[in-house]
Simulated scan of single mutants.
Amino acid sequence: MPLRPGGSATDHVYDTLRRQIMAGRYAPGVQLKEEQIAESLSVSRTPVRAALQRLVGDGLLRSATNRGVFVAEWTRWDIEDVFELRLALEPLAAGLAAQRATEEQIAEMTALTDRMDDLADETFRERLQDIQNANHAFHDLVIQAAGSPRLAQFALSLTGMPMIVGTFHFYDYMDMRGSVQHHRELIEAIKAKDRYFAAQVMAVHLRVTHEIFKKNQTSAQE
């Protein structure tokens, strides 16, 4: 993965390692060594060290005092469980949001989707963090609009997990455009107060994300 124009060496290392970790290239518990990574990516150890610390902050790596950094213990089945739980909870939330969302919440969903739309051009990787932030806020808002504190308690605990927040690292341009379109379809379903349609749109949206994730895991292991 070449260093993109205008991107820092730390960003390059961070993006590369995040994709590799999430794709399962490194087994849970494996130590990541600065020198080996620096050599493989043709950079100095300084940006590698900074990138590793960012990944620790993301929850994808764990740091052990005087021992280094290790891949967090996310197994394949942990990830599958998270996706299955989201598929159980977020379509339900979307359906309830179609019945209960306020005009202000719908307007904010639209504004967040417009922001994603503006950012998601062919150079979207240069603004990936901003896109992820808008997407995360959109999903959280749909959950809040469901008006169910108990549902929100469970669902919101899933949307912030590191394996979920970083899925856009696997997207290409057409995947990203499809994600924005799903958001717009969901907003239309909520505006129409169509509980069934809203739940179905969210289910399709999450399944597409899951399939993209699984495809990249498979590619990394071949």
Rank of each mutant, 00 (worst) to 15 (best):
S157L: 13
S179K: 12
F154C: 04
A134R: 08
T167P: 00
M161N: 07
H139D: 08
A134V: 02
Y171R: 04
M161H: 12
P162V: 07
A155G: 06
F170Q: 06
A152M: 08
Y173T: 11
N135A: 08
I164S: 06
S148Q: 10
N133Y: 04
A134G: 06
G160H: 14
A146P: 00
M176C: 07
D140G: 15
L158T: 07
Q181V: 05
H139V: 09
F170M: 07
S148I: 01
F154H: 14
L156H: 09
R150G: 14
M163Y: 11
R150E: 15
T159R: 10
H136F: 08
I143R: 04
M174T: 10
V142H: 03
Q153S: 14
D172P: 01
V142L: 06
L158K: 10
Y173R: 08
M176L: 15
I143Q: 03
I143D: 05
D175A: 09
A152K: 09
T159S: 14
F168H: 13
P162T: 08
D140L: 11
G160L: 11
S157K: 14
Q181N: 11
A146L: 02
A134T: 03
V165R: 14
D175R: 06
A152D: 04
L156D: 03
L151E: 07
A146D: 01
A146F: 03
D140N: 12
Q132S: 12
M161T: 08
S157Q: 15
Q153H: 13
S157C: 07
P149Q: 12
V165C: 03
Y173S: 07
D175M: 06
P149H: 11
I164P: 01
F154Q: 14
Q144L: 13
F154A: 15
V165T: 14
I131P: 02
D172N: 15
M174V: 11
T159I: 15
N135T: 05
H139C: 00
M161C: 04
A146V: 03
I164W: 10
Y171E: 00
D172K: 08
M163S: 09
L151F: 10
R177D: 00
I131C: 05
F170H: 10
H169T: 10
M174K: 12
Q153P: 00
F168W: 05
L141M: 07
S179E: 13
F170D: 06
Y173F: 15
V165W: 14
M163D: 06
V165F: 14
H169V: 10
N133Q: 15
L156P: 00
M174H: 13
L156M: 14
N135G: 15
Q132L: 11
Q181M: 08
R150C: 02
M163C: 14
T159P: 03
L158R: 09
T167F: 09
Y173A: 10
A145K: 02
N133S: 13
L151T: 06
F168E: 13
N135F: 03
N135K: 07
L156Y: 01
P149V: 10
A146W: 00
Q181P: 02
N135H: 13
A146M: 03
L151C: 04
T159D: 06
P149A: 12
Q144C: 00
Y173D: 05
V142W: 01
L158Q: 08
L141C: 04
P162C: 09
V180G: 01
L151R: 02
A155S: 11
V142C: 05
Q153Y: 11
G166I: 01
Y173C: 01
M174F: 13
L141T: 02
M174G: 00
Q181W: 13
A145M: 05
